[in-house]
Amino acid sequence: MTTVTITSIPFIRFFRREGIGILWLIGLIFGIVLPILTVLLWAFAIKWRYPSVLPTEWGLDFWMETLSRADIRRALPNSIALSVLVTVLSAVICLPASFAFARLQFRGKQGLLLSFLFTNAFPRFGLYIAIAVIFFRFKLVGTFAGVVVIQLLNTLLLMIWIPTAAFQGVDRALEEAGLDVGASPLQVFIQITLPMVFPALFAALLLTFVNTFYETYGALLIGAPNVLTIPVIMFPLINNQPIPQFGAILSLVLFAPSVVLLLFANRLLRGGYLTAGFGV
């Protein structure tokens, strides 16, 4: 005679094994996914009356209206130009340095490398105030250049840390093998070293671009009201606007580059790029 024990029912067995995981999943969907989903829904809603779970009227009408606003038409190119410029400059400034940190021997190397980590010990907002005081004197407040500099500071650590680790990670023997078959040091660098660090460099550039695209404090303190970026013009739109769609649509515009990042999320995670530069 066979007795059906409760644990032999597949669902119960599954829940016993995965119960905690399922609870976490439900909790995080409520806490994290639903708020993000709210934004998405609002962006495509024309009307959303309480207590309807979904928008009562759907449509793209507000997209036209949002994207044709004068302030947004000014801010979007600003944001893009700023992000591109900062990414390029950051690479130019930091990549040679990270190569030096990874490969060359010099006195004080460890200390200098650590000094980048120490910048984490300053609260960002207070720091920008202190920098703003200096920028006032150099008339950099309210200029594009001023915002570029402040954003560079913001991404410096990332752009030093990820490539340095990547260059350190390339096995010297692989480069020697290149020399051995007749490649010049430059050929070795271009054809062997660079392709091997490429994923890390790509991650660093992508993270720099996205971080600059989002960045709010520096742009607000140094750029406003002359140089406006998308995050900065969102403040009044979120706070004082009776129309929630503006904020929702701009949020999605701001989120767009992150989608690219999300596609690489797994690799970013495995490469340790998401916590690079915090001394973990």
């Binding site: 969907i29 996914v33 989120f255 992150s258």
Partner: peptide, 23 residues
């Protein structure tokens, strides 16, 4: 669970604020 817990990292700060307000 891990992927969802990482999600806020990819959300712009001001969007998080907005999302939470709306939520």
């Amino acid at each position: 669970v891990q992927m969802i817990s990482l999600l806020p990292m990819f959300v712009p700060g001001i969007m998080s604020a907005y999302a939470l307000i709306r939520f």
